[in-house]
Nucleic acid binder design. Structure first.
Length: 415
DNA sequence: TCATCACCGATA
DNA sequence: ATCGGTGATG
């Protein structure tokens, strides 16, 4: 379907720490077109996506090889409906970027470099488990843990060929339901899978949900009662939904807020972690102890949250996601394929830190001006005239190449 | 209400 | 020692 990458940047969105279950498969090199395929296993199908600048390619694979013709259209409609819901495609992200840029100079500087960063609307149950895993943890390990959990606790729905090696078939496992993870032995099993102290949290949370909200399924809906209950929090107030989430073991304020934002429709919620804290201190004049570390007290959490909401407004959670993805420029970090390719990892950790530091410099409130002769791009000229008129303008690295000398010169010419 | 600590595993 | 936290203590 026709869809601008300005509205959705798949590569970035699927790796920025929202969802941890997408397979990212490199495609055989071609002249042009998509370089990767992204796959996610749902309960009844595997969704496969590719992206070009103006097109989003989608298809779904099913277990049964030859469905009746009549099913095909129906299934396609379902997949498309799922895409719209999951990626919230009806929300105009470009318009949001515009709104934020008017209110916030900092965000304005990121807009052209980090386009298409949007909040997903995920399955709440999967979201709960994934983010219990996220405490004191990093994206690449969380990804491995979640994938390991699915592989261990749910049978493969189907297998699909690896695009870069079509004779190799990769199995796809759905996310297991609460009743499966509620079993008493899950705690120790997950521990052997490398979940550490989070293993017990997950089992306890699953058991709690099943005990309190049930595990029965409906005729036409494979999801369990507690999953439906969680989904029902979408139509509950933010405060009430948060209160419910905080009852789950392993879910504190930060994790609860992640779930509220990323699967329960609470677009104004800004999860505050130490990273966001640093962003707030650096760009938005929040106090941070000069000695380095600050304790994240509930009080401070509220202050930060309030501050960021006051800056970003109604869709603050979405704006936070852009800032987070921008700052987390470790998109080069964890490479494609989930299970296989352990070697690749060793090349990256060194670069990561450097990239980050470099990025931080780029984003300082007063960007460094590169001295020396400069060819003025059209963007730079536009920016220059905007500066002279006192208007907000694009200060992307390209634009910033405009030297100080040039700015002064142009200023004189106009006056 | 606030501060500290253990917890698990990876990395610098 | 630090990290994209939480729960249990004082």
């Amino acid at each position: 379907m026709p869809f601008s990458s300005l509205q959705l940047n798949l590569a970035a969105v699927l790796k920025c720490g929202q969802s941890f279950r997408w397979s990212i498969l490199p495609l055989p090199a071609t002249e042009a077109g998509p370089t990767h395929e992204y796959r996610l296993c749902l309960r009844d199908r595997v969704v496969c996506l590719r992206q070009a600048t103006d097109t989003l390619f989608y298809r779904a694979a099913f277990p049964d090889p030859q469905p009746p013709q009549s099913q095909l259209a129906q299934r396609d409609a379902e997949t498309l409906a799922w895409l719209r819901d999951y990626f919230q495609l009806d929300i105009d992200l470009v318009w949001l970027y515009d709104q934020w840029s008017e209110r916030d100079k900092v965000l304005a500087r990121f807009r052209d470099r980090f386009t298409g960063i949007r909040v997903l609307r995920q399955d709440p149950w999967e979201n709960v488990v994934s983010f219990i895993c996220s405490s004191n943890n990093n994206i690449s390990r969380i990804t491995k843990m979640v994938q390991g959990l699915c592989n261990h606790y749910s049978p493969p729905l189907l297998s699909l060929p690896d695009p870069s090696n079509p004779s190799l078939f990769l199995p796809y496992h759905p996310f297991p339901p609460p009743s499966t993870l509620a079993q008493p032995d899950v705690s120790t099993t997950l521990r052997t899978l490398g979940f550490g102290y989070r293993a017990a949290f997950i089992q306890k949370t699953a058991k709690y949900l099943v005990d309190i909200h049930g595990s029965n399924t409906l005729i036409d809906d494979p999801s369990e009662a507690s999953e439906r209950w969680l989904r029902g929090l979408r139509s509950t107030s933010t405060a009430d939904a948060r209160e419910e989430l905080l009852k789950l073991t392993g879910v504190g304020r930060k994790v609860a807020d992640c779930i509220l934002l990323m699967s329960l429709n609470k677009k104004e919620v800004v999860p505050v972690d130490t990273h966001v804290h640093q962003i707030a201190v650096k760009y938005y004049g929040m106090k941070g102890s000069s000695s380095g570390k600050t304790n994240m007290t509930p009080k401070l959490y509220e202050e930060l949250n309030a501050k960021l909401v006051s800056i970003w407004g109604d869709y603050a959670g979405w704006a936070h996601c852009v800032m987070f993805a921008a700052d987390l420029k470790s998109f080069a970090d964890f490479n494609a394929t989930p299970s296989s390719s352990p070697q690749k990892k060793s090349t990256t950790p060194k670069r990561k830190r450097e990239d980050r530091l470099k990025d931080e410099v780029d984003c300082l409130p007063t960007p460094p001006i590169t001295p020396g002769p400069t060819t003025l791009s059209r963007a730079a000229i536009e920016a220059a005239s905007a500066i002279l008129k006192g208007e907000p303008c694009d200060l992307s690295p390209e634009t910033v190449q405009l030297s100080v000398a040039e700015r002064v010169k142009r200023r004189r010419n106009v006056k």
